[in-house]
Nucleic acid binder design. Sequence first.
RNA 1: GGGCCGGUAGCUCAAUGGUAGAGCAGCAGACUCUUAAUCUGCUUGUUGAGGGUUCGAGCCCCUCCCGGCUCACCA
Length: 531
Amino acid sequence: MYWADELAAAVAGPQVVNDSKSPSGTVHIGSLRGVVLHDAIHRALLGAGLESRFLYGVDDMDAMDSQALLTPDAVERYMGAPLSRVPAPAGSNAASYARHFVGEIFFKTFEPLGIKPEFYWVSELYAASRMDSYVKLALDRADRVRSIYLRVSHVERPSIWLPIQIICENCGKIGTTYATDWDGSTVAYTCKPDMVSWAKGCGHEGRVSPLGGRAKLPWNLEWAARWGVLGVTIEGCGKDLATTGGSRDRSEAISREVFEVEPPRNVTYEFLNIGGRKMSTSKGQGVAAHTIAEVLPPEQLRFLFLRPRPNQVIDFDPEGDTIPRLFDEFDRIAAATAGREVKGELPSDHERLFAYSLLGPSPDVTGAAAAFRPAFAHLALLLQIPGVDIAARMEAEKGAPLTDMELALLAERVASARAWLESYAPERARLAVRRDEMPAEVGALDEAQRAYLAALAASAEAEKPGSGDAWQTLIFRVASETGLVSGRAFGALYAAFLGRTNGPRAGWLLAGLEPAFVVERLRAAAAVTPA
RNA sequence: GGGCCGGUAGCUCAAUGGUAGAGCAGCAGACUCUUAAUCUGCUUGUUGAGGGUUCGAGCCCCUCCCGGCUCACCA
């Protein structure tokens, strides 16, 4: 059974699926794995006849800690401030930095993937006092919190430490304050200049109520509190958090022992690596979500994340054959789903995998599976030949007119293939007519092939073929006249124009070039002395 | 040091307890109009090592070896 369906079969009653993201830091392609996974889980729950909500939270009470994202004059003032209070970059009319960044960049990648969670902003949960009862519990039971940190993670907190981060009333920063002395309604705090290295506190000291949005819980407690506030029943997380003694363990212990709430079911998911290496934006290895989305249409991007089980590493190297093969594998699964015979082994419940790769919430699986999908590599090739009518060629391949859905799929693939040719396609997938010099490969042609080229030059000059069809006919006819097997005739042409042993349909290739150049090159190639 | 994932054909990978198999590469062949297409045939295995469970193990359990990521400060 498909893993998401297995999960859905294992639960009962109404479900709340939750995921969240801190808006600080760059969003790269790997960040989308969790989103797509949670969406698939949500759809699996609905498909199993359960009630389900899919929530997505933005951690905008977190402190701004990335200097690279601020203009230099804003660093002094906003480093350490809650992201909800950092203004959006110049030119944006968003209400805050967090809203700009997440709204403009991250959410725009959700919509095309057919993912529509209910968004919520953590700063609003605090401001609306929905977190207050958990803040009080955390402070009342600070000793329990400290002992959990010690027991689960071997982190020792001083006895005056309180699990709360106050927003400084003077400078507005949250990353620089240290709170002590909870008296049941207020805490004392100091905004320390040297609390953290990346932000400077103002030195203010005060006493304030931590409720109603004036403070936030530290990460692990906030996570647990949210499970309680929102009634979360399923929430996966990356393996960096799920390690023994790590964040997830701490939050689960806090949820049970401090808030007395049963934590949600976990689905730990592995990372997405690029070419066997971890993604790192600082090393230029990270692929921004919107960049890869130009090359991979939504369905293939979903497929990339949904085909492996969640706890398997995905090694995605956009170079080489990876992208064409991803399309081919998708098409194979589509064909199998449509009931056609395919080669090779299929994943268990491949039709479920196919359905979840389609854009939700309730796609036409049968129609999509049966649709004609042009082979990606073939399409990329055709795009490089001048004067090819792609739609007509595809119709000929299918043997029937394309439906509206198929035309849309074709347009989508054409755009992907163009983007691929410009970005990740290997040299061997790119065609280039060698205009400037004779390819060295011509030296490998034998006498019969050179004679063929000479004869073709003469015939072309006399008959002046004007179309791909006319050229193709001539190529075959001259081959027949000179007694050369057609495959070797084509080989000679590819060597003379492309410097390779094979290529696209030669007639259309030659028809796209200037007649004078074609004849001249044919003659020159025919005259080359064999190596 | 702890955790997770992986190790299967020359390469990339599939196969969730039931005959180890695909793509690419290679070899041989077909084709007078898809020539990076299509079709036919062939070849390739100590499934990292060892033990265990089972009628049956690539898959489950145990012990190792190798590689990758991750955590151990904060969020």
